[in-house]
């Protein structure tokens, strides 16, 4: 059974239909990617799932509960966490304090949270940046910290919004390795990503959307061979990129 099920979401802003009957599912222990050309509605569906935008209709069901339009903080308390495309973080706090805030999502003990933060820092090899402020880091490290921040909240589902944007090739490899390991923790990963090579190598399942609508879905190989996908995707993306 899917831990997260997004059902028939519709959302319009200023007369413009942004999401049109969009549905998708995420399974625990799987990486599900959402791909589509620019303006397809990828970040918007993340905003809807994570409670930052209210859809006009449709439902977000998490762990068997209807959580549509619940407050973001509430959703995070329940185990649904996200990153942001434009890395925000808590700019002037240290990397460690960023992670401590996340760890406090599950415990009231600051000591316990610090212990968990240190363990996570160790695990992600962020030790050398521990006491630096998040803004002083390179973009690659910032993206890793962004993911660490989200993991520290102890999520069952993580939404990763373009965590590879702006990374160099070697950094992408590190991130791919890292994302691959997430399902081992029993986490359902939902990924929005432009980096197609990375998406193909890391995903168990891919959902293709275009103009806010479901276009196709399946395994990476299935999707890559779908003529509709190739047309929509390459048609617009290849000419722009």
């Amino acid at each position: 059974m899917s831990i997260l099920s997004v059902q028939n979401i519709n959302l319009a802003r200023g007369g413009l239909k942004i999401l049109d009957n969009l549905s998708l599912e995420a399974q625990a222990g799987h990486v599900t990617s959402v791909i589509g050309p620019n303006g397809a509605g990828k970040t918007t569906i993340f905003n809807v799932i994570s409670g930052f935008m209210r859809p006009d209709s449709g439902a977000v069901v998490y762990d068997g509960r209807n959580v549509t339009s619940m407050l973001p903080e509430k959703l995070c308390n329940m185990g649904l966490a996200r990153t942001f495309q434009r890395v925000r973080g808590l700019p002037s706090l240290s990397v460690r304090d960023n992670i401590v805030v996340g760890a406090l999502n599950r415990t009231s003990s600051v000591r316990q949270a610090k212990k968990e933060a240190d363990a996570l820092i160790e695990e992600l090899d962020l030790g050398e940046y521990r006491d630096q402020s998040a803004t002083s880091l390179s973009i690659g490290t910032r993206k890793i910290v962004e993911v660490a921040r989200v993991l520290s909240t102890g999520p069952n589902v993580v939404l990763l919004d373009e965590v590879m944007g702006g990374l160099g090739p070697s950094e992408v490899n590190i991130m791919v390795e890292f994302i691959r390991k997430l399902p081992e923790r029993g986490i359902a990963v939902l990924l929005v990503e432009h980096h197609m090579e990375a998406v193909m190598s890391v995903s168990d399942h891919i959902v293709v959307i275009n103009r806010g609508r479901n276009l196709a879905e399946g395994t990476p190989t299935e999707v890559a061979q779908d003529p509709g996908v190739i047309e929509a995707y390459l048609g617009s993306e290849a000419s722009n990129a």
Binding site: S50, F52, L71, P72, E73, K74, C76, N77, A81, R82, F84, R88, G89, L90, P91, S92, L93, D97, V100, V101, G102, L104, N105, V110, A113, R149, V150, T153
Partner: peptide
């Protein structure tokens, strides 16, 4: 910690479970 998180960035803080 939660107060500081809100001061730094309200959206991020809320996405990390801090009740605004």
């Amino acid at each position: 910690f939660q107060m500081r998180a809100l001061r730094e960035d309200e959206v991020t803080a809320r996405s990390m479970g801090v009740s605004a």
